[in-house]
């Protein structure tokens, strides 16, 4: 199962190494990872998307992360009400003959054109990963020349629907 996990860490050198190293040592599969400062410069937040087999493995992952000396907080926010965002840059083959057609496809995604060449256009699109998958799928037939995705970052919403049962984090 895919989980979104945020890890708040003290911004020590090597802390990213330590956290990803831990996931590797314990054979967890990282699908994506984003890192950046929080409002406090000495504190960073990492957002992981990981694939875990079952609840027991998930609990183990959270506990092992929590155990790291530089880790302040670990949250599995998958089941919370959250905002999930990813950004992608997509360079598409778009000769003038089809450019209008492509633009009309792109429009509902509210993608921005950030670079235009003679035969190619680069779009920037943000949204949850599914939206980005759909965007890419639609553009594929035209020929994608280059593609980069940032990986997921996420935020817990201010108002939560119902209380989701926590795992037995002791």
């Amino acid at each position: 199962m895919k989980r979104i996990i945020t890890v708040t860490v003290i911004n020590q050198s090597g802390v990213l190494n330590r956290v990803t190293g831990l996931l590797m040592k314990r054979q967890f599969n990282i699908e994506s990872i984003t890192v950046g400062h929080t409002e406090q410069p000495q504190i960073s937040k990492m957002t992981f998307v990981v694939n875990v087999e079952d609840e027991q493995k998930l609990e183990q992952l959270l506990k092992q992360l929590q155990k790291q000396v530089d880790v302040l907080k670990v949250n599995d926010i998958t089941e919370k009400s959250i905002v999930v965002r990813e950004l992608a840059l997509v360079k598409v083959v778009a000769p003038p003959t089809v450019r209008a057609e492509i633009n009309s496809i792109v429009e509902p995604f509210r993608a921005a054109t950030i670079d235009t060449g003679k035969n190619v256009v680069t779009y920037q699109v943000t949204g949850n990963p599914e939206k980005i998958d759909a965007f890419i799928d639609l553009l594929k037939p035209y020929g994608i020349k280059d593609l980069t995705r940032t990986g997921v970052t996420a935020f817990v919403r201010e108002t939560q629907k119902v209380h989701t049962p926590q795992l037995s984090i002791l």
């Binding site: 027991q56 183990q60 506990k63 092992q64 929590q66 155990k67 037995s168 984090i169 002791l170």
Partner: peptide, 17 residues
């Protein structure tokens, strides 16, 4: 004393950290 050891290998009814 290490919560990560509890439930790691054997399901535990009464965990005491």
């Amino acid at each position: 004393i290490d919560p990560a050891e509890i439930g790691k290998n054997v399901p535990t009814e009464i965990p005491i950290v």
